[in-house]
């Protein structure tokens, strides 16, 4: 049998298979190249966050948010996903990281992407680098890790910051652990603690807003990143992920960083904060 004839059944089968698959593909029409988003509330993006106001990230109130990096990001996401409104609800941070979003489509709350949290949540690609940083009262020096070890520390419960503090600094005194970020900062202000650990973009925003109260002394060597958290198994992950990549490519995330965090976290101000030296 000529070679071309022996190939013919194979070729016909391959073409038939491809056409059948193409039929399946046509059945998926309308999902969009970048994924389809189905909101819980019609024509609105429902966003969960733990704290408003949160300097640099959220301004206003839950009922009437007025600005901030993550609020701006939520609005951009809504526009990108063809939704007219952004609805914000309050959910405690420890609930968020356990995958309880209170019925929201997604959470924007300075959430660092970790493997442990990924067991309860689906994450988008990251939108901001966020290494742990040491915030002190202006005038307090933190020369190296030995000096940091002897400070009195405060940190928020259930955060990657607490883990970083325990692993990288190993404080010699009892660390104060609080439920909310604002309690951590109050402890620093009133002198119960002389150092606290915050995500670098958050720390820079606080230091910019209240330079007489806070100074960013150092950052830890880390690849920590903030990401959008979605309920595990959500069908919306592809669409949100694509939208975040598009916002990055379009420069929108940089623009929001400049507007609300007063610095380009990816390149500029973050590099001016010294990395904590391991030993003196």
């Amino acid at each position: 049998m000529p070679a071309s004839r022996s190939l013919r059944p194979l070729a016909l089968a391959a073409i038939a298979g491809a056409l059948a698959l193409a039929g399946v593909g046509c059945a998926n029409a309308g999902k969009g190249a970048a994924g389809l988003f189905s909101p819980r509330t019609a024509n609105a993006l429902t966003v969960a966050t733990a704290q408003i106001p949160d300097p640099g990230f959220w301004a206003g109130t839950f009922a009437h948010p007025t600005g901030g990096f993550e609020y701006g990001l939520a609005k951009q996401l809504a526009a990108r996903l063809h939704l007219a409104h952004v609805k914000v609800i309050e959910v405690p941070f420890h609930e968020l990281v356990r995958g309880h979003l209170g019925g929201a489509d997604l959470a924007l709350s300075d959430i660092t992407i970790t493997d442990e949290r990924a067991q309860h949540l689906d994450f988008s690609t990251s939108y901001l680098r966020a290494p742990p940083s040491i915030v002190v009262r202006p005038g307090t020096e933190v020369a190296d890790v030995n000096a940091a070890r002897d400070l009195h520390w405060a940190v928020q419960h259930d955060t990657t910051l607490k883990v970083a503090l325990e692993r990288s600094i190993e404080p010699t005194t009892q660390t104060l652990v609080f439920e909310h970020q604002r309690e951590v900062l109050v402890a620093l202000e009133v002198g119960r603690a002389n150092a606290v650990m915050l995500d670098l973009p958050v720390a820079l925003a606080y230091a910019h807003e209240s330079p007489h109260k806070y100074a960013v002394a150092a950052q830890l060597q880390s690849e920590a990143q903030l990401g959008v958290a979605l309920p595990q198994g959500s069908d919306n992950v592809e669409a949100v992920d694509s939208a975040i990549r598009a916002l990055k490519a379009e420069g929108e995330i940089d623009r929001l960083g400049h507007q609300w965090l007063h610095a380009n976290i990816e390149e500029g101000a973050a590099e001016e904060v010294p990395v904590l030296r391991a030993e003196e």
Binding site: L19, A20, L21, V24, G25, N28
Partner: peptide
């Protein structure tokens, strides 16, 4: 996955 294979089928028909 079904969605991936469906898209792939369309791409294969169009390309090849």
């Amino acid at each position: 996955k079904g969605e991936t294979l469906g898209l792939a089928g369309l791409f294969i028909v169009a390309c090849l």
